[in-house]
């Protein structure tokens, strides 16, 4: 059952993103920024938490989930450490994902040849 909810909730968030791409002149970068900031906002006002409870990965894997993690991290840090938590909590909560992206990007840059959309078969290492 949790797979079904993850599929539907995650799919819906992606479908909304697609509508924004197709029907507005928003660039993908703007859409991602909107998603993250929306995630922070929804996390802050306490809406995202219950949504994530039932949608599981359908709520945490999309970038709104990234925003929600930031908000959650800040909330916990501010409660524990005071004002300094506003600066430390967000990055702490998302450190894993961001550092992983950087580290894997470096590994890929080291090991792979750059891509080529015009080639038949691409990207052998």
């Amino acid at each position: 059952m949790d797979y079904l909810w993850a599929f539907l909730a995650g799919g819906a968030l992606c479908a909304i993103g697609q509508l924004l791409i197709d029907l507005t002149s928003m660039t993908p970068a703007r859409i991602l920024v909107t998603y993250v900031v929306a995630g922070v906002f929804l996390g802050a006002v306490g809406v995202y938490e219950p949504y994530a409870e039932f949608a599981g990965a359908g709520a945490t894997v999309p970038l709104t989930g990234f925003g929600y993690q930031l908000a959650k991290g800040v909330r916990e840090a501010v409660t524990a450490d005071g004002l300094i938590g506003a600066l430390t909590g967000g990055l702490e909560a998302c450190a894993g994902g961001i550092t992983a992206a950087v580290v894997f990007a470096l590994i890929v840059a080291l090991l792979f040849t750059r891509g080529d959309k015009t080639a038949k078969i691409t990207g052998q290492s």
Binding site: C14, P62, L63
Partner: peptide
Amino acid sequence: AGAGTLVPITGFANAVVSPALE
């Protein structure tokens, strides 16, 4: 997939890895 691969965290990773490689 369009936004289907853009919105999930995998899209974030792709946005970091692809310029690194390029």
